[in-house]
């Protein structure tokens, strides 16, 4: 069980930067709660990327006391489909944490709903390289920043300079993979298909907050590999 809000408020990380990617960032909730949790981990430079449509609708929640644009940058992302990742990353000089999952930065996504999340930690003292998921998320943020105001690019450049460990290459700490899909990228299902190819699988477990109505994705999961595995779906 991961309480994302607790995981984001960890002073041991001595973070300098946080990067939040979500479809919906409830600006009021972020400003009054998430921002403070991130700051208690040390993240004085905070970046938020969210889908442009819910962002526009949520602007009513910004009051004169909001720290938006001062304590953190918000970059609305416009794309043909929805901008739909949910990632929460804290970068420090020697430690870091990344939480990837299904919950938006909202009351529902981080407090009330049952959501699925996975956690990646980095601690330089352990002598292992960082999981590539960290650099994948940073690179995604850098790509998104090319369409943002220059200050966002500066925030990311500083973050990368202060966390040089993020580019260290070495043996993978574990077998987990964070795949960044979206415009121009391969779809998640084809990545899975390539990873498995014709091999034998014992079990496929899919955990998601939602599935397509016709369950096409579940059917495809059931047909992965040579299709004789059991498929478990947790919604």
């Amino acid at each position: 069980m991961i309480d994302v809000l607790d995981e984001l408020a960890d002073p041991d990380l001595e973070a300098h930067t946080s990067i939040v990617l979500a479809y919906n960032v409830d600006l009021l909730f972020y400003d009054k709660l998430v921002r403070r949790r991130l700051a208690s981990s040390g993240a004085m430079s905070q970046l938020v990327f969210c889908d442009a449509t819910p962002y526009a609708a949520g602007l009513d929640g910004v009051d004169p006391g909001s720290r938006i644009g001062r304590a953190y940058s918000v970059t609305p992302v416009r794309m043909s489909g929805a901008f739909h990742p949910k990632a929460y990353m804290l970068l420090g000089r020697r430690k870091a944490r990344l939480i990837v999952g299904s919950g938006n930065s909202s009351i529902g996504g981080l407090v009330r709903n049952a959501e699925a999340f996975g956690r990646f930690d980095f601690d330089e003292a352990k002598g292992l390289p960082a999981h590539p998921a960290f650099s994948a998320i940073l690179d995604l943020a850098k790509r998104l920043a090319t369409r943002a105001v220059p200050a966002v690019t500066s925030q990311l450049a500083r973050a990368e300079a202060w966390s040089p460990w993020i580019r260290t290459v070495g043996p993978l700490p574990d077998a987990r993979v964070v795949h960044v899909g979206g415009e121009g990228g391969a779809g998640l299902m084809s990545v899975l298909r390539n990873a498995v190819s014709g091999g034998h699988l014992k079990r496929v477990v899919a955990v998601s907050a939602s599935f397509d109505r016709k369950l096409d994705a579940v059917r495809e999961l059931a047909q992965l590999g040579n299709g004789d595995h059991e498929t478990i779906v947790i919604v």
């Binding site: 919906n24 009054k32 709660l33 403070r36 929640g61 009051d63 009351i107 529902g108 407090v111």
Partner: peptide, 22 residues
């Protein structure tokens, strides 16, 4: 705002409504 403040400071969930997907 008030409910979020209570959640942040006391951990009390007092929302009577909340935004969800707009």
């Amino acid at each position: 705002r008030v409910a979020t403040r209570k959640l942040a400071s006391q951990g009390d969930y007092t929302y009577r409504f909340r935004p969800e997907e707009g």
